[in-house]
Design a protein around this nucleic acid. Sequence first.
DNA 1: ATTATATATGAAAACGTGTTCATATGTTGA
DNA 2: TCAACATATGAACACGTTTTCATATATAAT
Lengths: 102, 102
Amino acid sequence: MKLSKDQTIEIAETFRLMGDPTRLAILVECLDGPVSVGDLVTRTGASQSLVSHHLRLLRAARILTARREGKNVYYAAMDDHIRTVVGDMIDHVAEPADEGLG
Amino acid sequence: MKLSKDQTIEIAETFRLMGDPTRLAILVECLDGPVSVGDLVTRTGASQSLVSHHLRLLRAARILTARREGKNVYYAAMDDHIRTVVGDMIDHVAEPADEGLG
DNA sequence: ATTATATATGAAAACGTGTTCATATGTTGA
DNA sequence: TCAACATATGAACACGTTTTCATATATAAT
């Protein structure tokens, strides 16, 4: 599987955004359906400002989608690829495999 | 799907490591089978030292496995979860979807 | 209009990571 | 043992990101 330099950079950027614990926690909360910003603040324990900053990044990278409903804004995982990626990574980390050499 | 704080940190760490263009390029080259360090240097265009530093991180995080064969050391993707994760992410980035709101 | 609630944003502080350079270690063959 | 090749490592530099604080915008209700 051969990737262009631009593809590589875009994919790396998406992984990088998933690679912060606070952002990943936000993303995981959004996997099963839309969640309001307020609920994300409660569930992750991060500050409102921090959650909002991270949501902007996740949305800009098309990892999450947003829709406003009255005073609230609901965020959800962009597509099934995102759900699968996180799911597979959870499975990977669960494996007690060896890392080779010594 | 509910994750512990430690699980979240470990998974984020794995994503973070995939989130650098040089490291991702190295990883992608290792998806189809074992590749020597020298070949990785050639194929990625990165310096020998840099490739080696990154390989150490990828191996420590159980993203790649290593086996020595004579003078060479061959690196390969750790398991199918890793291959699937990268594959799904490539599919995700290929999608021309909307990011919601304005 | 004013107040209350929900979310977003800019700037600065606090912190971490990628890369290079020089050098060390490991392996093979003469 | 010496030379030649392959890979690994430590220290330092250069740069970027996460987080907080204060404040702004948006929506709804009285």
